[in-house]
Design a protein around this nucleic acid. Sequence first.
DNA 1: TCTGGGTGTTGAACATGTTCAAATAATGGC
DNA 2: GCCATTATTTGAACATGTTCAACACCCAGA
Lengths: 240, 240
Amino acid sequence: MFNTQIARKHSSETRSQILDAALALCRERGLEAATMRDIAKHAGVALGAAYYYFPSKEAIVQVYYDAVGDEHSLRVQAAFQSANLDLEARLRAVFHLKLEILHGDRRLLSALFRYTGEPEHPLSVFGPATRSNRQKSIALFRLALAGEKLPEDLAGGLPILLWALHMLLLLYFLYDDSPEQSRTHRLADSGISLFVRMLTLARLPLLKPFRGGLFALLRDAGLFSEPTSPAYVVPQEEPS
Amino acid sequence: MFNTQIARKHSSETRSQILDAALALCRERGLEAATMRDIAKHAGVALGAAYYYFPSKEAIVQVYYDAVGDEHSLRVQAAFQSANLDLEARLRAVFHLKLEILHGDRRLLSALFRYTGEPEHPLSVFGPATRSNRQKSIALFRLALAGEKLPEDLAGGLPILLWALHMLLLLYFLYDDSPEQSRTHRLADSGISLFVRMLTLARLPLLKPFRGGLFALLRDAGLFSEPTSPAYVVPQEEPS
DNA sequence: TCTGGGTGTTGAACATGTTCAAATAATGGC
DNA sequence: GCCATTATTTGAACATGTTCAACACCCAGA
C-alpha cells in the first residue's frame, strides 16, 4: 500500500491531524456532511484511529467548544488589562471578541445548539456536563461588571442574565445572513448600549419592586444557583 | 408467515398505526432509542411502509408538532369564548394549556429543539419552514392581548415577545425535574403576573424612550418582521 | 539481540436511518 | 370476469456512526 502519510513522531501529532481535518471539514460542509470516514481519510489515518483519539464525533465538537471558551477568556482578560475601559466598552469587548472567535465557524456552532433541549446530553449548553465551560463564560461577564457599584441582587444576577443574552445573540448570529454577520455586531452594540442605559434606570429605588420581582422570579426558578455537584465532570481529552 | 396484523380498510389506518406506534415509542424511550424498525414492528408493518407514509423520522415529529399547534389553538379559542377573562387570566390560559398538551411529551419536545441552531432545517423552530406554525402560535398571544389599549409599538411587538418567552418556558420545562413539572407552572404564573405589572409600567410616557429603545432594537434586528415568502411551505402529510 | 507489554493503528462488523426495485393488492374500465 | 394502472407493501442494499478483536510498532530490560 502506498505510504501517503508523513512520518509522525508522536501520537499527539496524529491527534491534532485528526482534529484539524475534522474542524476543516465541518467548517466547510457542516457536521453532518463531514463523515468520520472522510475525516480519517483527510487526516491520513484509518477510521478506527479517529475513534482512538475521540470517543465520538460529538467529542470533537466538544473539544472545539472548550477551546473557544479558553480562547475567549484569554482575549477578554488581555483586553481588560491593556486598557482602562468603561462598562460599555468592556461589554462590547466581551461580545465582539466572542463573535470574532466564532467568525467562520457558524456550521460548527450550529452543532452545539443541537443538544439544547436534551438536559442529559454532554453537549447540552444548559446541562450539568458543560457547567465548567458555562461558569468560565459567566465569570467574564462578572469581570466586565466588576467596577460597577451595584445592589447585591443585581451583582449576583446580571452576569448570568448577560450570559443568557449572549447565548441568544449567538443564536441570532446563526440566522444572520448579512455579509460578515454585520447585523449581529450591530445588534450587540445597540443591545449593550440599551442595557447600560437600563442599568442606570434599574438602580433607581423607584423601580426596586419591579427589579426585585424579576430577580426573585429568576431566583425562584433556580436560574441563579446551579447545583454545585463537583462529581459531574465530563471525561474528556486534553484540548489540542 | 404469521399474519399478526389486523385487517385494515384504508391506508390512512396504516398511517395512523405507524404514527401512533412512533409517538408511543418516542414518548417512552425518546426519539433516538425509538428505531424505525421498532416503530414499524409495533405498527405491524415492514420498515419500508413507514417510509411510504413519512419521508423521514423527523417528519413524524413534525406532524406531532403541527398537531400540538392545532390543538393549542382550539383549546385557547374555546377557553376565551367560554368565559370573559382579564388579560392575566387569558395569558395564563395560553401558557397552561400549552403545558397541559405537552405534559408527558417531554422527550418528543426535546427532539424539536434539536434543530434550533440550523436555520435551513425544516424543523428549526425559528426557520422559514415552520413559519406557519409559529404565526399561528403568535396569533394566540395577539388574541390574548386583543382587549388591551396599547400603543402601536407594543401592540405589534408584544405578541412576538410573548411567543419568545413561551419558547424559553418550554426549554425550562424540559429541564424541570420537579414532580409533574410544577416549577414550570409556577414560573409561568409568576412570570405572567410580573409581565402584567410591567405592562402597566411600560405604558407610562416617562418610559417611552426605553420602551422605544428596546422595540427599535428588536425591529432593527428584523425580529418583528418575518419575510412573507408564501412559497416557503413545508410539504407534509395530513395530520391524523 | 531477544522479549514482553504498552501504545497506536487497522479494517471488518454491527446498528440504524434511508433508498429503491420488485412484489402484491386495489381499483377502475371494458 | 379480465386486464391495465395505480396504490401499497416488502425487504434487500447502502451510508454512516460506532465497536472491537487483531495486528504493528516501540522500547525498556534481560
